[in-house]
């Protein structure tokens, strides 16, 4: 059972990266986040979890939020007290009409593209907490929280 993570933890260091929503930037996005998190000396498994969760969130921006158009993806990484990592991935795309449904395992609106519908499930499994706020026509912010080992 996962415990809830404190979103108000004091920020000790932070980084913001803004990338256009080209699919080639998926690798850059997760690598940049992982490189910044490396200063906390996470385990290889923790780092792999963060990279995978970030990759899912960024891919959602490209595939779903902007749907073939190019828009801005803003990624903010906050390293907080208590070895808490918070990654916010924000787009200004189409937004999600039904967030609860989008978070269900195997749910996808892009079956032709061989999407597995496991994106949010991966994020939730590899992080301690995932928060999604979205407004149709305005965009979506996904916050990934992961507490690293002591």
């Amino acid at each position: 059972m996962k415990s809830r993570v404190d979103f108000s933890a004091a920020v000790e260091n932070q980084m913001t990266v803004t990338l256009p929503s080209y699919s080639v930037n998926e690798g850059m996005a997760r690598s940049a986040v992982a490189a910044f998190c490396a200063q906390l000396n996470p385990t290889a498994v923790e780092l792999a979890d963060i990279k995978c969760a970030v990759s899912e969130a960024v891919t959602n921006c490209i595939v779903h939020a902007y749907r073939g158009n190019v828009g801005e993806i803003r990624i903010t990484v906050k390293l907080c007290e208590g070895r808490l990592v918070m990654v916010e991935i924000r787009d200004r795309g189409c937004g999600i009409e039904n967030v609860k449904q989008a978070r269900e395992p195997l749910y996808t609106t892009d079956a032709e593209g061989e999407r597995s519908g496991m994106g949010f499930t991966v994020m939730e499994s590899f992080c301690d907490e995932v928060r999604v706020s979205s407004r149709v026509g305005k965009g979506t912010t996904v916050a990934l929280l992961k507490r690293l080992h002591k």
């Binding site: 997760r30 990279k51 995978c52 990759s55 891919t59 061989e114 999407r115 597995s116």
Partner: peptide, 13 residues
């Protein structure tokens, strides 16, 4: 070295 859920779709396909 790395695979996200896109790899799941790839394998299932």
């Amino acid at each position: 070295d790395f695979m996200d859920s896109s790899g799941l779709g790839l394998i299932m396909g």
